[in-house]
Design a protein around this nucleic acid. Sequence first.
DNA 1: CCGATTTTGTTCTCACGTTCACAAGCTCCT
DNA 2: AGGAGCTTGTGAACGTGAGAACAAAATCGG
Lengths: 251, 251
Amino acid sequence: MTRASSRRPGPPTRTERGIPEATVARLPVYLRALTALSDSGIATASSEDLATAAGVNSAKLRKDLSYLGSYGTRGVGYDVEYLRYQIAREIGVTQDWAVVIVGIGNLGHALANYSGFGTRGFRIVALLDADPNLVGERIGDMEVRDFAQLEEIVEADRVSIGVITTPAGPAQEVCDRLVAAGVTSILNFAPVVLSVPDGVDIRKVDLSIELQILAYHEQRKSGEAALPQVPELPAMNGLTDLPSVGGGVGA
Amino acid sequence: MTRASSRRPGPPTRTERGIPEATVARLPVYLRALTALSDSGIATASSEDLATAAGVNSAKLRKDLSYLGSYGTRGVGYDVEYLRYQIAREIGVTQDWAVVIVGIGNLGHALANYSGFGTRGFRIVALLDADPNLVGERIGDMEVRDFAQLEEIVEADRVSIGVITTPAGPAQEVCDRLVAAGVTSILNFAPVVLSVPDGVDIRKVDLSIELQILAYHEQRKSGEAALPQVPELPAMNGLTDLPSVGGGVGA
DNA sequence: CCGATTTTGTTCTCACGTTCACAAGCTCCT
DNA sequence: AGGAGCTTGTGAACGTGAGAACAAAATCGG
């Protein structure tokens, strides 16, 4: 969204405060690092200090911060509180965002109790599930409500973010309902590729994919020499009992 | 295959089966899509079909697959079972990987029950926690064991992958212990940047970061015109009570 | 057997992201 | 006041990734 102004090999043609996606993904990390520094009573930090705390290269950090504006002092560094506020404002966590969680299985339960939500910036307004046996159950200070109430909840509480923690099966349908109800950002934990209309942002968190990526690298480390080099063309029979990766999230 | 021969601005000079990281991250998605197609009884699929199922562009998919070798038939497509096996082998999920989970709070509980682990490819061999009140508790068919037993478990079961679901505080120490014990791949759910020596792979899954990224885009959607355009330089006093994003994972 | 049709594998080009390196600018000390 | 010493902000080079486009190869129908 929003590129396009001049046409020239200058800077990536960033339009009016358009921050590169890669940078956006790191801002929360910087924010957390700044909070940690602040809690340690540190008032000023150099890009080097911050970069170390955030686990990135200092040049990258400086360039990232430069997209937000020129909030540092040459020869000195960055004022921790000030920069923290600026980043928080840029990300949008100076205001509260209403969140619903759909699918109260194991993972939904865990997220409902997750203190990271409780911190300011995000407010869980409802836990939803279609299973009548779960509806009414109390989790922390919240009660599981019927998924059928989705629309009224979204409207009443101006919910803009939905978290999907259902099994793979119903995930797309849940997603469609969320979008239809007016939710415009979705965080998906179900192991499926969800499709959403333009204008709706979606991010996925997928445990088994992460594990498989680790497995790939692990294999190259330990395997490299130890594994049979090439079963390139195994007989194509009897392969029906392969690992069925994927599976559902919830109970 | 066969990269690495001449020295010229040709392909990125990929050395001997070195698959680009971006491709590696997509292989598990393709694997899942293939499994779904297979379960639907589909024996052959074109790159277009596969790309749709995986939610990517077909040219990208073909290029990704070409790194693995030339497993398709022009004019026909890909044999689903065959390709599935090839990808599974490349990723390394045709063998089993032993996994330990450290930190049995809400999230650890959820992961212990997560069926995605139970599927073949990964085998949870131990649930560990340092809290004596948790040790001995049964979760599914496993029992929580004392974190002190880490070293012997890793050695006995040839554990190569560790999952950290502790709060932020102890995460680095747990990580160090895992590495010292011989674990070479780590999946971190704690909201901290962990540092590991070379040779150890680490991936992080961070809920609050994902939410903040969504919030950023959400703000640009709804805010753009509605928000006060620039409180660029607010008074620098009284900013100590800002949102404390971050926080811990476990209970 | 040959041409039409389909679909892969690959090349080329462009956009994006990372890193280096350095000038500009600030502070502190003499 | 002026120079030494830091540290930011950014220009430029490099590397990686994405997508369009097309030639090569396979099937199918006549």
